[in-house]
Simulated assay, not measured.
Amino acid sequence: MATIQLTTQGFKENIFNYETEQDWKYQGALPAIIDFYADWCGPCKMVAPILEELSKEYEGRLVIYKVNTDIEQELSAVFGIQSIPTILFIGVDGEPMMQPGAFPKHVFKQVIEERLLVPVTNELGDNQIDL
């Protein structure tokens, strides 16, 4: 499965409906990565093929979405996207972790293996990713 282009409406239906819910509640069945990007963004272009490869490697275990920030401005505003790419990681437990920046493939794989495919137990409540 390739990466999936996500609209604001698709986000509300498949990820989280921020108009009807106050508290984050992930609606997906599999862990997910959501790439907030723009077509003109150089670092975004470097990340895109990596995410395509990962979507095939983790098919059936992980879903990778892409949100074009130029088109989906409402969604970008809701998440306060200020720099791109910004990656939203959603683990098997449904907990979101937002991280700006373009990462090499091994970093994505480390986050997927250590944070997304296994429940995170973090007594500090810190959702930042240690890179």
Rank of each mutant, 00 (worst) to 15 (best):
Q110V: 02
K109F: 08
V107T: 15
N17M: 04
P104N: 06
C44N: 00
I84S: 12
Y37A: 00
T20C: 04
D35S: 01
H106D: 14
S55A: 15
M46P: 00
L54N: 11
M1I: 10
K45A: 01
D126C: 11
Q110N: 10
I64P: 02
G42L: 00
E57L: 14
E59M: 07
Q9M: 01
K12C: 02
D23M: 04
A38W: 03
E19V: 02
H106T: 13
K12V: 04
P85T: 03
N17C: 05
C41H: 01
Q73K: 14
G10L: 06
L6H: 09
M1F: 10
I4S: 07
G101F: 04
I112K: 08
E59I: 07
Q99E: 13
D35N: 10
E123L: 12
P96V: 11
G101Q: 12
E74M: 03
P100W: 12
L30P: 14
Y58W: 11
T86Q: 08
P96N: 08
Y26P: 10
R115Q: 14
A38D: 03
K66Y: 08
E52S: 08
I129F: 02
E72K: 04
M1K: 08
P96S: 09
G101H: 11
A2G: 06
E113A: 11
I81L: 13
A2R: 05
A32S: 15
L124D: 11
T86L: 06
N122S: 10
N14T: 13
Q73M: 13
L124R: 09
R61I: 07
P85N: 05
E113H: 07
I64N: 12
L54W: 07
S83N: 15
M98H: 09
E59W: 08
V78N: 00
G91T: 12
E19L: 06
I129R: 03
V120P: 05
D39Q: 05
Q22A: 02
V78G: 00
E113M: 06
Q110F: 09
T7L: 03
L131Y: 13
E74A: 03
L88R: 02
D93W: 08
E72D: 08
D70F: 07
I129C: 04
S55P: 10
T8W: 04
V78W: 00
R115V: 09
K25I: 03
P85Q: 02
E21I: 02
G10P: 05
E52Q: 15
E13P: 02
I50K: 01
T69R: 07
F36K: 04
I87S: 05
I50M: 01
I112S: 10
S83L: 07
G60T: 08
K25C: 03
P119N: 09
L75P: 03
Q27T: 14
F16A: 04
M1D: 09
P104D: 07
S76C: 14
W40A: 00
A48T: 04
P31D: 10
C44T: 00
E74C: 02
M46V: 00
L75R: 03
Q99T: 15
A2Q: 08
K109T: 15
M97E: 08
G42D: 00
A102L: 05
K109D: 13
F36H: 02
F36Q: 02
E59V: 11
F16V: 04
S55E: 13
I84L: 10
F108P: 13
Q110M: 15
F103M: 15
P85K: 01
Q82N: 14
E72I: 05
I33T: 01
N127Q: 11
Q22S: 05
G60W: 10
